[in-house]
Design a protein around this nucleic acid. Structure first.
Lengths: 235, 235, 235, 235
DNA sequence: CATGAATGAGTATTCATTCAT
DNA sequence: GATGAATGAATACTCATTCAT
């Protein structure tokens, strides 16, 4: 029996396990994914998994960590390209939606699985929410500082933003025939900017030239055109 | 001592099971609650449970259903006492927070358990979210119709509202030493009303006379005073 | 498929499990006996076992307890029929050997298994040894009190007696083609009585009329005639 | 820095593995010691171990063999220095106790581990017991031949002696706060010599001049002063 | 010689569900 | 109606052993 592929061989088994676990979790959820399933998907053995990871939980945690890291990094990169506070917030919002749109599995793991993993991971869930809400809050604080938005309770506002984003993505994930996730952006942007006291003029400005050419105008409503899926999500 | 009406007896057993399941689920989560636990708490036997319910899942579903019904009824009753659209929305918001504040177990089951129950219940979760978002949307539509708020995408706005509420309650549930949940109301109200385009004047008005005497002024910040718990929640 | 046997049915499953575990442990040792093996031997299911016992360990402990109890009871009954202290000690010795001779499985479980169960049960082993050594010591103390034997360190003597008995039985268990265990009695008796300072005259007296007719004179050496085995041992 | 002779290097690795296995077995028992544990303690790899030994079992057997050899050699050396038969027996007894007292790990491996290793090693256990009992028997036979003790069944007597020794050491190993093991010597000596028919006069003689100055008089009872431990035991 | 990644059979334990009494 | 004994498939995790590099 010939070696499958030297490249495959080299891309360490550890990675293969993570990939397999990632998509398995995304497909069936944490609790309904058996370690055997992961082993099978990774084309290895149960023992092999336990050589690389101390427990099923550890795999999950690592997956969460790196997935969240990846998203945060992406957001921060996008935000760094904007100078105006409100534009930064917009960029963050846009990036999150765009990322999940292109990596549905990532979204599944981060949004549905963490929830579905049960009480055991609530501390993790909490930390994750905290992290994202904190990120948002930073941008809002900055906006307040520069006078872009009036002084307001950025604590609750960031929670509202995060909760809203959470819900929008979750709905998209659970929808039968979801349209492109990015289509939610304009409306969501409007509502959230308004919630933060951004002047209507500024809100209209962004909406007039839809995403400054960065976003192609999509079908205005939740059209059935399925989002391009990615199969893997992890890279 | 006369025997109770057999039908009555049966009903009471059924109720006892539901009560027991409710608090068991709230305490340990759906998956970590064994049917045996429920049986023991209900002072009946496993067989007894399977006489009244076809499966553990069915118990959970019924619980979800009635719990949601109860909440919706409460909200609708509160809303009915207001005539002005914005006031209706405020009443809804206030009622939800107040209800959960007083029935932490109810919140646990509705917010944490449904999530923790895994993929199996995602359709249910979805329906529940839909239902509440729809409720909110109705009030918003009404507000738009009466001109209380400018025309806007009430679909996305209701999703934002629900997501925000969801997140606020979830955070409160997971906090170590949570202050009274109602304390979140003023700030949350402000952000959400603003997100719906309610004029600042109207927003300030509600905030000026704090809850028109309906809400006792609580410690202004997230004070550690624990919320009054209710032990049961179901009634 | 007809009921196997109503009597069998009634002899509660719990007993059947204990019996099965008993002989399984005796055959393969504690660690090499899988719960599945016990289940199969008891003609029940793994779940059935866990309904009656919380763990494999618990089965083992119960078995040890009752087996030891049975032996102690037997010894005490035999001892009670003698009035003279030295005769009591002789009776104890004789009973232990006779019991194990007739219940080889009992001996296996009590002597080999407890040892083979590993560190986990050392406290138990200890307690068991303590118990039997204590029993012996009581008889020795009595013998000292009545002047049947000179004052001596009954503590160490009882340990010596127990150790000797232990070793004799263990050897018999591990021998390829063991002769009757009782054949060891006369010589063992002589050595042990002597170790306790019983006068030679008294020792010779017991030996002259070999076991007062209670023991048939067997082939004087380790004859190959296999001991009558009992198949079950538990009753 | 010149390379060591490869043969020497290999031997030293082999020794390191044996040492590591020895203390690992003594600490956690045979079954609860993983080959990985041994590898880690020996600062080598699993593969390295399997280069030097065919199996975990083989390591254990070799350890048993050499440990027993060492003990036997020590005993024979001590015995050789005595000419009188009873004194030889006393020397043997004394040496065993003294050796184990100073090498508690050795005792653990030889007494507890062999027992704890399960059925697989019963043949070994047997052979070991046989060996020691045979040793003792030789001295007893000699004593009978020279008339130091009356003619008696040296077969059973040696078994009694070994069993007694076994039990005394095992108790000491399992005791919570054991006193010095050698403290057991005087009493044990007395009982065993008596069991072999050594005249009381001779017994008293040894006891009067405690160990002829060879043994410092220890606290007369089982004092809590812990025995000096040795850390390694193998050398 | 040495390494350490990989294997896979084996382990005890859990639990929703069934059903004879 | 109620009981609780019984079922058996499922689960996470262990570990002695092998072998390509």
């Amino acid at each position: 029996m010939p070696r499958l592929d030297p490249a495959e061989q080299s891309r360490s088994r550890r990675e293969r396990i993570l990939d397999a676990a990632f998509s398995a979790f995304a497909k069936r959820g944490y609790r309904d994914t058996a370690v055997d399933d992961i082993a099978a998907a990774a084309e290895t053995s149960k023992g092999g998994i336990y050589f690389h990871f101390p427990s099923k939980e550890a795999i999950f945690r690592e997956l969460m960590q790196t997935t969240a890291d990846k998203l945060v990094a992406r957001v921060e990169r996008a935000v760094a390209q904007e100078s105006e506070p409100v534009a930064k917030a917009e960029a963050a919002l846009r990036t999150v939606l765009a990322t999940f749109a292109g990596h549905r599995t990532m979204a599944r793991v981060l949004f549905l699985d963490l929830a579905g993993a049960g009480r055991a991971f609530q501390a993790e869930t909490n930390a994750l929410h905290e992290r994202f809400a904190g990120l948002i809050r930073g941008y809002l604080d900055e906006a307040v500082a520069t006078g872009a938005i009036p002084p307001l309770d950025t604590g609750i506002t960031s929670v509202v933003w995060f909760g809203a984003l959470n819900e929008v993505v979750a709905r998209w994930l659970l929808a039968d025939r979801p349209g492109p996730l990015e289509d939610s952006y304009p409306a969501l942007r409007e509502v959230l900017l308004r919630s933060a006291g951004v002047p209507e003029a500024r809100i209209a400005q962004g909406a007039a030239s839809p995403a400054d050419g960065k976003r192609p105008p999509a079908a205005a409503d939740g059209s059935p055109s399925p989002a391009p899926e990615d199969g893997q999500g992890r890279r």
